[in-house]
Simulated assay, not measured.
Amino acid sequence: MRYVPSRMEWRLMLLLSVAAAVAGCSRGFRPQDFATPEALFKASLQEFERKKWDNAQLGFERLTNDLSSRDPLLAPAYFYLALTHERKHEFLLAAQAFERVTDGFPDDTLAPTAMLGSGRSYQSIWRRPSLDPEQGQKAVSVLRALLSSYPDAKEVEDAKARISTLEEWFAEKDYMTGVHYVRVRRAIDPAIIYFKDVVTTYPTTKAARLSWLRLNELYTKIRWKEDAAETCTAMWKAYPGDADVRSACGVQPADTTAVPAAAAPPAPRDTIALAPLAASTPVVYARPAPVGRG
């Protein structure tokens, strides 16, 4: 007698067939399916543009592992791998991949953009001034290297702006450390050291103005009259017409002839309202894949 499947069995077999067909048609992005590095690079770039970060990472990682050091696709593969990590907020991996471009291909047209990306990635790791500034220091080091290595690059202005933002954060951190010594530890000497470091190292920052005021306050408190007078002279020059300076030091004497520096915007005595780190906006550099591999 011939066996006839039941209705339930027919449905089960149909579902299994559909599942097998779907699985066969949607294997996903597989780097090993591409016959040439050029094809894989093009496909990975398409995945990147579609914001398929995981797929793009798979493709670019495969290229960086398989290509020879002289292959013209290696630098852009590392570059886009770095951008992919950055878009995934994997900033340390992004910085390291950008550095593979700048270290291995310093004469490549991608090098200045990659160096900016490396500095930007380190900057993104340092999320606020109260944290360990090590990554911020790395960012400044990389960005200053960009200014010296590629002075005519279009990335220079962005690098300068980021350095300025980072210096504001360094200054704020030192200023708040000085405030901590005064308020919590009641230790004047180390506080003076921190405030003097701010006005010396970061003279154009918002924290510099507050540090001058704090120095004047401390010198007056411990009756170091000459030092207090010097702070007033410095503040009259740097912040002419500032209300807090006038309150601390009085009106500038008429015989003071030094040309004042540009005044920083007024800020509260005990707080610093700094702008957040610039948003990460990577520059996408799409370089055509080379024609032929010889």
Rank of each mutant, 00 (worst) to 15 (best):
I125Y: 03
D189L: 15
Q137T: 14
D152E: 10
R185V: 13
D189H: 14
R127M: 07
S141P: 02
D158E: 15
D174C: 02
S149C: 12
L143R: 02
W169N: 03
L147V: 12
T177P: 01
S164N: 10
Y175H: 05
I188Q: 09
P133L: 07
L147G: 12
V156I: 11
A171R: 13
W126D: 00
A187L: 13
D158G: 15
I188R: 11
K173T: 00
Y150G: 06
V184K: 14
P129Y: 00
L143K: 05
D158C: 12
H180K: 10
L147W: 12
L116D: 04
L116S: 04
K160R: 07
L146W: 08
G119I: 00
L147D: 11
A191K: 15
I163W: 05
K173Y: 10
A187H: 12
M115D: 11
F170C: 12
D152R: 04
S118L: 03
P190C: 13
I163D: 09
P190K: 11
K160C: 01
S164E: 14
K173I: 03
G117R: 09
E167Y: 14
W126A: 03
Y175R: 02
R120M: 11
G178D: 00
E157G: 08
P129I: 08
I192F: 08
S118N: 01
A139E: 01
S149R: 15
M176F: 03
E168R: 05
L146F: 04
S141W: 07
E134W: 04
